[in-house]
Simulated scan of single mutants.
Amino acid sequence: MSTFKNKLGQAVGAPVANWRGCAHPRGAVIEGRLCRLEPVDADRHARDLFAAFSEDHRAGNWTYLPYGPFAGEDELHEWIKGTCLGDDPCFFSIIDLANGQAVGVASYLRIEPAIGVIEVGHIHFSPLIQGRSISTEVMYLMMRQVFEVLGYRRYEWKCDSLNGPSCAAATRLGFLFEGIFRKATMYKQRNRDTAWYSILDHEWPAARTAFETWLDSANFDDAGKQRQRLSDLMQPLLSVQR
C-alpha cells in the first residue's frame, strides 16, 4: 500500500482527485438474462411475494431478518407500504423472467452518495430461487449497478455473525471480511454481533470477470450442474484482497 504524507510529514490517506459524488439508486430498473430488478410495489408484487415466501414452510429464512414472517398477504402488503417505499433502504423486487413473477427482494441501504459508500441488505430470496443461478445474477446485477452505473467506491455487506450461510455467501460473492462489531444492534429481542464485509471499486473488474464466467451458460452441463464454482473463480481476487 502506498504511503502519502501531508506538508507536515504526517501519514494521510491517498488523494481522491476530481471527486463529485455518486447518484442515488432510486427508481432504477436493472435488467439481466434471468431476472429483472424493479422498485418494489405493494399493489403489483405483494401477492407474488407472499406466495413465494410461503414456500419456506418452516419460516427459517426470516430468522436473521428484523421482521417477518407475515401472517398473510395483507400484512405483507402493509409492511411494504410502510417500510419499503422510501429512499433508504431502497428496495427492489426480483422478477423471474421465466414466468414474470416476483420471487424475492433485495435493497440498497446506508446510502452515502457524497462519499461513495453503499450497502446491500434486506436480501430475501424465496425458496423458488435459492440455489439457482438467478440468485447469483441478482447479486451481480446489483454490484454492477453500484460500480459501473452509479460510481460508488465501496460496497458493503453486513450480517449477523451467527448467520453462517450469509457469511459464506459474502465470501463467495467476492466480499472481504473486515471484522465483527460486537453488540452492534438487537432485533427480535436478541443481541446481534455484526460481521462486516466489503468490496471496493478497484476490485470490481476481477469480480465481474468471475461472475460473468460463472453465469455463462457454457459453465453448466446439460443437467444444469456447474463446471466451475464461483468461489474458485473469485480466488484470485480474494488472494489479492488479503
Rank of each mutant, 00 (worst) to 15 (best):
E156A: 02
W79G: 05
Q145F: 13
D48L: 02
L97D: 05
H24P: 03
D88Q: 10
I30R: 02
K81E: 14
A184S: 13
T209S: 11
E148P: 03
T136C: 05
R110D: 10
A102M: 05
F70H: 12
N99M: 01
C90Q: 14
I80Q: 10
A23P: 04
H77W: 11
Y67A: 05
H77C: 05
D232L: 08
S2I: 13
K183I: 06
P165V: 05
V146G: 01
L76Y: 03
I123N: 11
F175L: 05
T209Q: 13
F220W: 15
A207R: 01
F181H: 09
F91A: 10
I123W: 10
H77Q: 07
A14K: 15
E73M: 09
H77N: 11
V12P: 08
A42G: 04
R36S: 08
Q226I: 02
F175P: 02
G68C: 10
H124Y: 10
D193M: 08
T136E: 08
C84Q: 14
F70M: 11
S231H: 01
M143C: 14
H202S: 11
M139I: 07
W157M: 03
Q130G: 07
V146Q: 07
F181E: 06
Q241L: 00
A46R: 07
E78V: 00
V138A: 04
S231D: 09
Q228W: 01
D74M: 06
D222K: 12
A59N: 14
P127F: 10
Y64H: 15
E55Y: 07
S198T: 01
L8K: 14
A184E: 12
L76P: 08
R58W: 07
I180V: 15
L237V: 02
